[in-house]
Design a protein around this nucleic acid. Structure first.
Length: 491
RNA sequence: CGGGGUGUAGCGCAGCCCGGUAGCGCGCCACGUUCGGGACGUGGAGGCCGAAGGUUCGAAUCCUUUCACCCCGACCA
């Protein structure tokens, strides 16, 4: 069917790139490290945005927007923050161009040098906290629960469509609280929102946990994360929620007067997920025939393809199909009827498989005669004939089934790829032969963590929440440990 | 930023070693036969060979510089 198509088993990255191309999601831009998200890819992002935005609103958040440019001096205010981001910042130094004296195009006008350089935000903590200073006076102004949908720029050395691009789209929540306890609760609440979204919308099971000091967000006291497993056995950090303590409040002097009349620094959180989730979605479910999208995030949930020999037949099928389309749409399901005469049925079948459309309905003269349709599901590739009686209800159930099945498949895969390992030899062997999540003991020191990374390329993805305590010996040093942590090679 | 690779038609590539004015497959356009898993035939359109210099009577090919992209590292959502 698909010809000269790199397979998942053969070459995972080529397979990934090919999927992105074939499904018409995105392409590499001629602008360094950047990506053009094409309409179909963007519509998946819009579905994600809708679902997430609702979850944010349901947990009491509101949206706002802050500037793209951040004065350089803002970055100097939080020491560890600047250290974390300094190496990957795009900097605006001038504000004007002029015609080149040699007549060839334009050059930067050196006279138009900015007094203070502007950083294109790699994340917005600094500009937001600088703004919050004026918004927060009293405990009555708290909590402040704001989210922003935006683009950010990180000058990454090496990029990969969706997973790491110089510019990416995301949401970043930035909240301010009167107490430490409240802020920690918020951090955890948003982690739960992310996990809920990943599992119930994306169909991707995740491990909730927190990062070791090495892997923590620059400026955070604690970084919580959700870690997902891709089909090549590599982990993908899919969302983070940071407890920032009073670091940014102190750096930007954000104080409030408490009930008791005392000036106190506020407690902060920030949390974000990005277009990287689209990469996660692709890598978690897709097969050699293309994308497999969970119905809840599929821009097109059902596609109807007519099969006909001539105009007259098409006209009859049009009528039959549009009726079916309307009845299914009445259930709130998005249906596309593709009666383009420019492509053949087989071509359309392949195209919608590449695009991961969960359900395909084929209608030919034979079906009309018998008052039935042929239904193919993308996840299992099963085909079956359905009577058109109560078809809308059947489709609704089928979509639910597909959503559940995709999730279950991912869960099964993760279970099969999760290993408990106690010796260093076994650790290395597992990484090579059965890549996935490795639960192993670690002595808790950054030095050992670093050493393991150097020797095996595996990092501690997280220390799972609600982790079972058990005594053991560090897989590398043999020093005592009280719990297992999750190791994996990661994107 | 270190190591390796690649830039030739919309896409994938050959040609380069050994200089002589560009070719293949897919796609695209037209017509016909087809249409229940990416159809076939015939005809046709499309490229100053990434860019800039140099060598030469002559450069896709040789030399220099430069830019971009991909892969492997280091860095990271």
């Amino acid at each position: 069917m698909a010809k000269n198509f790199p397979t998942r088993a053969d070459n995972y990255s080529e397979w990934y790139n090919e999927l992105v191309t074939r499904a018409d999601l995105a392409e590499t831009s001629s602008v360094r490290g950047c990506m053009v998200i094409k309409p179909y890819g963007y519509s998946i992002w819009e579905k994600m945005q809708q679902a997430l935005d609702k979850m944010f609103k349901d947990t009491g958040h509101v949206n706002a927007y802050f500037p793209l440019f951040i004065p350089k001096s803002f970055f100097s205010k939080e020491a560890s923050h600047v250290e974390g981001f300094a190496k990957e910042c795009a900097v605006v130094t001038h504000y004007r161009l002029k015609n080149s004296p040699d007549g060839k195009g334009v050059i930067v006008d050196e006279d138009a040098k900015l007094e203070e350089e502007l950083i294109i935000r790699p994340t917005s903590e600094t500009i937001i906290w600088n703004t919050y200073r004026n918004w927060i006076m009293s405990y009555r102004d708290l909590p402040l629960l704001i989210n922003q949908w935006a683009n950010v720029v990180r000058w990454e050395m090496r990029t990969r469509l969706f997973l790491r691009t110089a510019e990416f789209l995301w949401q970043e929540g930035h909240t301010a609280h009167a107490t430490e306890q409240e802020a920690i609760e918020e951090t955890r609440r948003m982690l739960d929102v992310y996990a809920d979204f990943a599992e119930n919308f994306m169909g991707v099971p995740v491990i909730k946990g927190f990062k070791t000091a090495n892997e923590r967000f620059a400026g955070a006291l604690d970084t919580f994360c959700i870690e997902a497993l891709m089909q090549d056995g590599k982990a993908l950090q899919s969302g983070t929620s940071h407890f920032l303590g009073q670091n940014f409040a102190k750096a930007f002097d954000v104080k409030f007067t408490s009930k008791a009349g005392v000036q106190e620094f506020v407690w902060a959180t920030s949390w974000g997920v990005s277009t990287r989730l689209i990469g996660a979605l692709i890598m978690a479910h897709s097969d050699d025939d293309g994308l497999v999208l969970p119905p809840k995030l599929a821009p097109i949930q059902v596609v109807i393809v007519p099969i006909y020999k001539n105009d007259e037949q098409l006209k009859q099928i049009d009528e039959y199909a549009i009726k079916i389309k309307k009845s299914i749409e009445a259930k709130g399901i998005s249906v596309k009827y593709d009666n383009r005469d420019t492509q053949k049925p087989g071509w359309k079948f392949s195209e919608y498989e590449f695009k991961g459309v969960p359900v395909r309905i084929a209608i030919g003269p034979r079906d009309m005669e018998n008052e039935q349709v042929e239904i193919a599901r993308r996840d299992t590739k099963e085909k079956a004939t359905y009577s058109i009686v109560d078809l809308d209800i059947k489709i609704e159930h089928l979509l639910e089934q597909i959503q559940n099945n995709i999730y279950k498949k991912a869960v099964d895969f993760r279970e099969a790829s999760t290993h408990y390992v106690d010796t260093w030899d076994e650790f290395l062997k597992t990484l090579e032969e059965k890549p996935g999540f490795i639960y192993a003991h670690w002595d808790g020191t950054p030095e050992t963590e670093q050493k393991i990374k150097e020797l095996s390329k595996a990092t501690i993805r997280c220390i799972p929440l609600n982790n079972k305590m058990e005594n053991g010996k560090c897989v590398l040093t043999g020093n005592p440990s009280t719990q297992r942590v999750v190791f994996a090679r990661a994107y």
